[in-house]
Amino acid sequence: MILEKATLDVIAHQTADFERAFSEAETIIAAMSGYVGHQLHHCIEQPNRYLLLVWWDTLEDHTEGFRQSAEYQRWRALLHHFYDPFPVVEHYHQVSGPEA
């Protein structure tokens, strides 16, 4: 299993709109092949920052299956205009801990 991590810096005073848009966008990603689950966390110290964690069966499920899909275009239209700067996305595989 692969963990996708993205730190999302949302434009000031747009967090409520972002959260509403995300509630629609999360249904898109949840329907994708290889999707396992996700979490969105709101930062306590920096109120415009979020942490998005998405679990995928394989790296390709995200980088090819999702990112090259028509559904990704809708995801992008819903969310990408909220970010400043645009997030860096990283992928991880688990090496320790429960279920490693």
Rank of each mutant, 00 (worst) to 15 (best):
L53Y: 07
E4H: 06
A100L: 07
V88D: 13
R20K: 15
I2D: 03
D61S: 14
Y83H: 12
M1I: 10
D9K: 14
T7R: 12
H80A: 08
A30L: 03
F66K: 00
W75A: 02
L59E: 14
L53H: 06
P47A: 07
G65T: 14
E71S: 11
S33I: 00
V89W: 04
H93V: 13
C43I: 04
F82D: 07
R49M: 07
Q73P: 01
Y92G: 03
E24V: 13
F18P: 01
F86Q: 14
V89M: 10
L8I: 06
P87A: 09
Y50Q: 08
Q94D: 01
E19D: 11
K5M: 10
E4I: 01
Q68H: 14
M32K: 13
H93M: 06
F22I: 03
S96M: 13
E24H: 11
R20W: 02
A16Q: 13
G65P: 02
E45N: 11
F18Q: 08
C43N: 15
L78G: 07
L52Y: 10
A77K: 13
A70C: 01
R20D: 08
Y83W: 15
P98F: 12
F22E: 01
D61G: 08
I2L: 10
H81V: 04
R74A: 11
W56Q: 11
C43K: 08
Y72W: 14
E99A: 10
P98T: 04
V54M: 03
H38Q: 15
L78I: 10
Y35Q: 02
D17E: 15
V95C: 09
I44W: 07
A21K: 10
Q73F: 01
H80Y: 15
H38W: 08
A6V: 03
A70V: 07
F86I: 05
L8C: 02
H41C: 08
V95Y: 12
A21C: 07
F86L: 10
Q73T: 06
